[in-house]
């Protein structure tokens, strides 16, 4: 059956068709194209407006007075007073900002160091239990964090690290390891063996080979994972909510930025000083905007690569 079909297919009216198509279709399609173009551009632009408008509105609102904000949703700020930002900074945003930076200054480098060490050894060295250990690391990414929260709280408490920067940083590192190991493991596998062998032949120790040869070669991978971890830890909210509550009356507040914003939202709702809250959000958004616009490609690649596991 198949043989005759094959023969008839090309024979079936190939001659008149191209003519008819060439004459009618393009115009046809152009007409459809114009309508669709207006339609699709409209939708695309609408969504862009939906993204930008609330953000812009919030930033503008931080320049308005509380009475203005409560009265109506729209209305141009009367005076462009930058003082609201310093007021927000003093009302707590400054402290929250510092807390976040301190925690991340410990946790991000440590995540990268420990993550790349584990990933490297698992990717390049044969030993018993290698596969098992790799799956053990990767499996951690599949469980919801809520499963661990209660015992985690008491574990950190027993280590006397509740409401401390280093305690939160260590927990961040531990919860960032699964993805970091997974991603860098794949990356180290793709690096050429020849360079590694040359270094070993030249008498470099394993440790030295890692730090001076392999790590520099893994830079693109490190950058992607680094951005991913920085954003993830900067935006973390659940872990600090559980681990960063003042433990006694004289234990100072060490809220991170996300926690602090929510705190400020609750306070400012009563104190009716919404411009301060909006200014605080603006301050919190700026670093993200700067990082995003300057590393736009890497950020998109780093974040979406997380879904490839």
């Amino acid at each position: 059956m198949s043989a005759p079909l094959k023969e008839t297919a090309p024979a079936q009216g190939p001659a008149p068709r191209p003519v008819g198509r060439g004459a009618v279709r393009p115009g046809d399609r152009r007409g459809e194209g114009v309508v669709l173009n207006v339609f699709s551009h409209g939708f695309l632009a609408l969504w862009a407006v939906l993204i930008v408008l609330p953000l812009l509105w919030l930033v503008l609102s931080s320049f308005r007075t509380d009475a203005q904000i409560g009265g109506s949703a729209f209305g141009w700020p009367r005076n462009w007073d930058l003082g609201v930002f310093s007021r927000a900074w003093e009302k707590g945003i400054g402290d929250y900002f510092t807390s976040t930076v301190v925690v991340l200054a410990i946790s991000v480098p440590l995540t990268m160091l420990l993550g790349s060490m584990a990933a490297y050894v698992l990717a390049r060295y044969e030993f018993r239990g290698n596969r098992l250990l790799y799956y053990f690391f990767v499996a951690g990414a599949m469980f919801p964090v809520f499963l661990a929260l209660v015992p985690l709280f008491f574990m950190v408490k027993r280590l006397d690290m509740l409401n401390t920067y280093h305690g939160l940083a260590l927990v961040y590192v531990a919860y960032s390891l699964p993805f970091t190991v997974f991603f860098l493991h794949a990356f180290f596998r793709t690096l050429p063996t020849a360079v590694f062998e040359a270094a070993v032949l030249d008498g470099a120790s394993h440790t030295r080979t890692f730090f001076q040869v392999m790590l520099p070669m893994a830079k693109p991978g490190l950058l992607s994972v680094g951005i991913f971890n920085t954003l993830g830890q900067w935006n973390q909210y659940i872990l600090p909510t559980v681990l960063m509550q003042p433990q006694s009356g004289d234990d100072p507040e060490r809220y991170v930025l996300t926690q602090g914003l929510i705190q400020l939202q609750q306070q400012q709702g009563y104190a009716s000083d919404l411009p301060v809250l909006f200014a605080g959000v603006t301050i919190a958004m700026v670093p993200m905007l700067v990082v995003y616009l300057s590393f736009q490609r890497q950020v998109q690649a780093g974040l979406t690569s997380a879904t490839l596991k």
């Binding site: 993204i51 609330p54 953000l55 919030l58 954003l231 900067w234 935006n235 973390q236 909210y237 930025l257 996300t258 926690q259 914003l261 929510i262 939202q265 809250l277 909006f278 959000v281 919190a284 958004m285 993200m288 905007l289 990082v291 995003y292 950020v299 974040l303």
Partner: peptide
Amino acid sequence: FPQVLSLAILAVL
């Protein structure tokens, strides 16, 4: 862009 903002910011916004 919304993807790089924390959910806490979204909550306030």
